[in-house]
Write a protein that binds this DNA or RNA. Sequence first.
RNA 1: GCACCGUUCGUCUAGUCUGGUCAGGACGCUAGGUUUUCAUCCUAGUAACACGGGUUCAAAUCCCGUACGGUGUACCA
Length: 509
Amino acid sequence: MNQKEIRVRFAPSPTGPLHIGGVRTALYNYLFARKNGGKMILRIEDTDQTRFVAGAENYINEAFNWCGIEFDESIEKGGEYGPYKQSERKHIYKDYAEQLINSGNAYYAFDTTEELTKIRSEFEAEKKTFIYNAIERKNLRNSLTLSKEETKKLISDGEAYVIRFKMPEDETVVMNDLIRDRVEVNSSVLDDKILFKSDGMPTYHLANIVDDHLMKISHVIRGEEWLPSLPLHVLLYDAFGWEKPEFAHLPLLLKPDGNGKLSKRDGDRLGFPVFPLEWTDPKTGNVSAGYREDGYFPQAFINMLALLGWNPGDERELFSMEELIEAFSIERVGKSGSKFDLEKAKWFNHQYLVKENNETLAELLMPIVIKNGVTVNQEKLSEIIALVKERATFVADLWGQVDFFFIRPKDYDAKAVKKRWKANSYDLMLELKELLSSFEDFESDIVENAVKQWIEANEYGMGAVMNAFRLLVVGALKGPHLFDIVAMIGQEETLERIDQGLNELGRKE
RNA sequence: GCACCGUUCGUCUAGUCUGGUCAGGACGCUAGGUUUUCAUCCUAGUAACACGGGUUCAAAUCCCGUACGGUGUACCA
């Protein structure tokens, strides 16, 4: 037995709002952790201080909070492997970088950015690719080409330096990925990546490996964009002599038109949100749409996202978070990228809206009702919602389905009038009004029975009466069962609407 | 350019490991039905194994090649 504890992490960089690809990565990590009784860690990777964006970290927390993705260890929650923010772990990394130098796996390099840019463009001019590798590093200024004394002097003189990984010259690196199985690459095409920057901060590669090791991460589940740096990471674990975690590289979320990784800009261009929550850029003031603000239920959002790249192997599509946890397995994650489909996302939301109970929907709709100057109690609104909710995708759509319960028709749909307001409609409605005013009890089925009897007895025709009636009550040929509507608005209001309609539409010649 | 990853209906996907079902489901779309109307709903239809070779009695499935797409190639993550 002696099963190792399952520990996974989601490690965003606070350089802006988290987009749905990131949310999905976090979700899969979360599902995997919960499914296997493991722990889920949130680590903020802010080693690049030049890209810091105010509010991003807060956004990340709020987004996960909305989605229902919980962390066991994080900045807020704490945990025994903290701190959970890399800038606060700054002091840790230098020692590890030096450990690698001492073991001959890394070296100091004194090249400036300008020098390297120049060399790269020279190579490019000759149509060659510059790789900072075992061959090129022999021609550059670093602790491998310089003597020990020179190196020491440069450093003590305050010369800027970075620490680079000493990539083996010609070695096959074999890696295993839970989704892609075996992947191999020869180290000769890899370059001596910078591990430690001249500003005293580690790069992603170093910080990531050190933190994953220190935080006892058992499974690294991350986006496919990291697959090319997996060899480096594997070699780094080996250089430290540490046990490697399992790796799983998730396929990317693609833009709906054409191909390519879904990017932050695509949302505005294509008219759908790429962010869970609305985001206002602190510099430009630009506002990007969010699923929450667009009216999606977090459960629908999560459900939709979970099925983008994973499936349970059977034909179920509707999953609560609990059901997702139960059904999830990393092996059933696909290999190829998936395009986001707005129509399917809407369909998911519709499913959740229909399932949602009427009282909750009434509560959510109430602000919109009030904004439209209508006063109604929640109980009555719930009853009305019950009649119409299958027609809506979003809570906001509901208003367009219920407004005529509260507001008399201001005008009458021209097409409907043309089609259904016939020469005899006026007299028919006049007679119907007489009939309706005779009721003591204005219940839906009582009125319905009586009206139907009256139609049959006089052979007026169901369509002729009902369509004209609906036109006067609703103002258009839409809406739920008409007798439910009139029962809901009441006898007096119904009669007044008939009067108003008769006035407005008049007798057709 | 180089390296790596990928490729089943328009989209999300099942099936591929362990060759042998009319290649299944969902969204969308189209048509019909239900309804007093619209929507929902129901039924039906639509449409795919990237291409070329090979192995085999038999290939979406195994092998090789090609094409296409993606990712990476920063003192970004």
